[in-house]
Design a protein around this nucleic acid. Structure first.
Lengths: 179, 179, 179, 179
DNA sequence: AATGAATGAGTATTCATTCAT
DNA sequence: TATGAATGAATACTCATTCAT
């Protein structure tokens, strides 16, 4: 099967890499697995990227950028602080598989960033962006607190055998939002 | 070098594994790296553990148990809610390398647990233990919130280029503690 | 569990080794597998035998001796040549699992003997014994032919998806027996 | 040494594997031994084959196909039943090293097929082919008998310290051929 | 520009064997 | 006498990367 001239191949590869990370975790994300997931010949990966590290870094950056945008969009449209509480609660309690995967990738990024300083700029930009979105409604320190709370609640939710009920999540968010 | 009788070898290997995880991350934690860190022949690892997965699982379990105990000890001795705020703030702002490593291992555990259900019991027990410790001073839901906040604050702190000042951390903890 | 003084342990180990060979084949017959099958500590094997080769050689010899005796017993009691045909047909068509295993071990022995001259004496003695048993009723050359036929028929039977009917086997044996 | 383009490498590896099996037996046929025999880097084996089992299966299949063809060619050119007896006798008594190796591989295949059902199709096809070749001159049941006799005679010959004289072999074959 | 066959360094793992107890 | 913890050499296998085509 020849498929010369495939302008969006780079992007397809990056998305495939993220899917593999979500499904199998970074330690088992290999060239071969990504190539198979992207339905792309093996040599294509090393043609477009200098190596696996490079590929993962770009994939994580893409993911962070996309999520930051989505986060901002979700929060921006909220009219007031009460709406903000609902939006953030939704964020934490999202049950769709896609959202689960997004968070799984996020935590994989965190774990990787602890060892790879080059990924710190990615995480830093992301955290800045999400806080900036919140700052339309709350002061910077509170934004920091809400952001951290969300981080922790989602993590616990993904690992917990029985998740915290939505009403409880809402209550905690409500408290965190009021200065 | 013959060292035929070595009764605490298992434990030494587990501790070495945790050191390697802290330094290099799970993806680069190999039999060889652990063996070198423990100053033990390679074959010793597969004698004591069925494989690398088994080794990591037991190492993480050991780490979780140790940290849960330390966490409880730290919180228990606190006289009242004000003392609790100080203790939790200390927890988040700890700067010693050892503490940094402890958290790095914790996040490596989280990332691994997302892919490996067998690790969920470890994370679950740990979360239960830390919340139980808090419940001496605050209601269960608040404990949940404090726990999540700590999780998120530490994560952000480890990844941030400029950490949140201690005073700010204290303020956020204070708010989270009051019901 | 201490079980000092266990006079038949050697024999138990040899029988366990034969069971392992029948189930998993020589390439996957290991010290550990035999020890487990014999319910005996690992060190016991290298205490009683100089190594795995020695163990297998003795096991094969034991098996050959036992089978030769059984073969002779089966053939000896036969009154005349017609009875011999029945006995040999029975031999080929035996369906019990135990008999299947016996043959599987025999062929494992053959394959091993091709590479290990030390095993040739075992196979030679066995072939001599089985022919000697037949020589009570037929001349030596015919005995040779019957023996070879049995060997080939059993082999084909064990590997075939659909075995040759008993009546056909009997017919072939009948022809081979008449000079 | 660079040898980038090598279109028949797969086949060379399979032939090398058969040589190793003939010389050392299946239990000692390792990736390394095959790679050395084929004069090919180690990684080449796992590139072309999924594992050692896969490699051996394909090698045995190749061997069986080749031998079935040779068998048929040998038997087909024979004019009548007397010629058939000569041809089969030749088959049993062949003394060339190459033929010895062929039989050694065949018995290794048998032993392996007893444990690996995937190899049964290979042995089955081979047996079918050799019988089909004989059926040009004798009825199917007789073909079965001749085939089994050959199998047994060759086996005994390879293991025997003193082989049966050719004249005796011929006599046995002659009897087996007449219905 | 793009590929996929090829490679070798590295991985996890197995296991016969040794030997202090 | 008997054990089982310990070892290291060898195994199967993976995979990032190279490079001729």
């Amino acid at each position: 099967v020849t498929r010369r001239h495939d302008p969006e191949r780079r992007e397809r590869i990056l998305d495939a890499a993220l899917r593999v990370v979500a499904e199998r975790g970074v330690p088992r994300t290999t060239h071969r697995a990504v190539a198979a997931a992207a339905d792309v010949p093996l040599g294509s990966l090393t043609y477009h990227f200098t190596g696996l590290d490079d590929l993962l870094r770009q994939a994580f950056a893409r993911h962070a950028a996309r999520l930051a945008t989505a986060y901002a969009a979700r929060v921006d449209g909220v009219g007031d602080r009460a709406g903000l509480v609902d939006a953030v609660t939704d964020l934490v309690c999202a049950d769709a598989d896609a959202d689960q995967d997004d968070w799984a990738i996020a935590y994989a990024l965190y774990a990787a960033a602890l060892q790879d300083p080059a990924l710190r700029t990615v995480t830093q930009e992301w955290m800045d962006a999400s806080r900036a979105a919140l700052t339309r409604y709350v002061d910077p320190l509170t934004a920091h607190g809400v952001d951290a709370l969300v981080e922790g609640l989602v993590m616990h939710r993904m690992l917990a055998t029985r998740p915290l009920p939505r009403a409880d999540v809402r209550l905690l968010v409500e408290r965190a939002v009021r200065p």
